[in-house]
């Protein structure tokens, strides 16, 4: 009965490197998430129609009454970077909802019993949400263009802004991935995410400049991540001092990645 001490069963499957499997498994999970997304029209609606309504409302309803604080800058040029941010920030909520769903439908239990890479569920989710966010951002750029949004810098700076935005979307979504796994249901994940998003997105400089806000709110918006990102995106799209705002934004992204990602990964390891 040698097999007990020295299990010598021939490998059942062709071997790749651990990293090779991790990438392949994450791609499979991302494929499955994107397929699912394409068959859940309400998610596509939520991630596209809703920001378009925001653009139209702010551009045409509130826009006339908002002073951008920068002489000669049309409100739509101030607004669109904020809309891009709002789009990816609310998109992050779907990351948590998706994970909560997988957890409570027993899919993660199945994944855990498979010889797949342990990082694949989170990495695949981050990847599919990055693809979705990229698509929605491209759509929002087009919508913005149609309602008069123009960049004041150059294409290189604009693309850098979009890269920064997408990097932020990934790091930010890990907060909501954590909430999704902690929540007892996908409905609870949504309900739990919304107040946080409201605090970060609505109470930010995404739609209106800080100048009109009370002092304490201005102080909050000097440091909170969505407003910091808004400042960096505007610097890259509109112009003005760029290095400091972008550095501040990068610090937030790196900070979120370094602090929140390990907590979320650990939560995934322990999740039921």
């Amino acid at each position: 009965m040698a097999a007990v001490t020295a299990p010598a069963v021939a490998p059942l499957i062709e071997r790749k490197s651990k990293l090779g499997y991790a990438v392949a498994d994450a791609l499979t999970i991302a494929w499955r998430n994107l397929k699912g997304m394409s068959r859940t029209p309400e998610i596509i609606m939520f991630s596209t129609i809703q920001p378009i309504i925001f653009v139209l409302t702010f551009r045409y309803v509130f826009g006339g009454s908002i002073d951008t604080g920068i002489p000669g800058l049309p409100y739509v040029d101030f607004l669109m970077p904020g809309v891009f941010l709002q789009t990816v920030a609310f998109g992050a909520m779907n990351t948590g909802i998706g994970l909560a769903d997988d957890l409570h439908k027993g899919l993660i239990e199945r994944f855990r019993s498979l010889p797949m890479s342990r990082s694949a569920v989170l990495a695949g989710r981050a990847l599919s949400d990055l693809v979705r966010n990229s698509g929605v951002v491209v759509l929002m750029v087009a919508v913005g263009y149609l309602v008069g949004f123009r960049i004041h810098t150059n294409v290189g700076a604009f693309l850098a802004a979009l890269l920064l935005l997408l990097a932020f979307s990934v790091a930010f979504s890990f907060i909501f991935a954590y909430i999704g796994m902690a929540a007892p249901s996908s409905e609870a994940a949504q309900a739990g995410s919304f107040p946080i998003l409201a605090l970060l997105v609505f109470a930010s400089t995404a739609f209106a400049p800080a100048e009109g806000m009370p002092g304490w709110l201005q102080a909050y918006n000097d440091v909170q991540p969505v407003s910091v990102m808004a400042k960096a995106l505007r610097a890259l799209m509109i112009g003005g001092e760029t290095a400091a705002p972008v550095l501040h934004a990068v610090l937030w992204i790196v900070g979120l990645a370094v602090v929140v990602m390990p907590i979320t990964v650990n939560k995934y390891r322990r999740a039921a």
Binding site: I13, Y21, D25, T28, K35, G106, L107, R110, L114, P115
Partner: peptide, 27 residues
């Protein structure tokens, strides 16, 4: 192989896609 009491299949995938997914994840 594990089949649980909650029938852990992906609702949005077809039956075939569910099996293909597991095939890929089991390498």
């Amino acid at each position: 192989g594990l089949a649980g009491q909650y029938a852990a299949v992906d609702d949005n995938l077809t039956g075939r896609e569910n099996l293909i997914m597991v095939g890929r994840l089991t390498h």
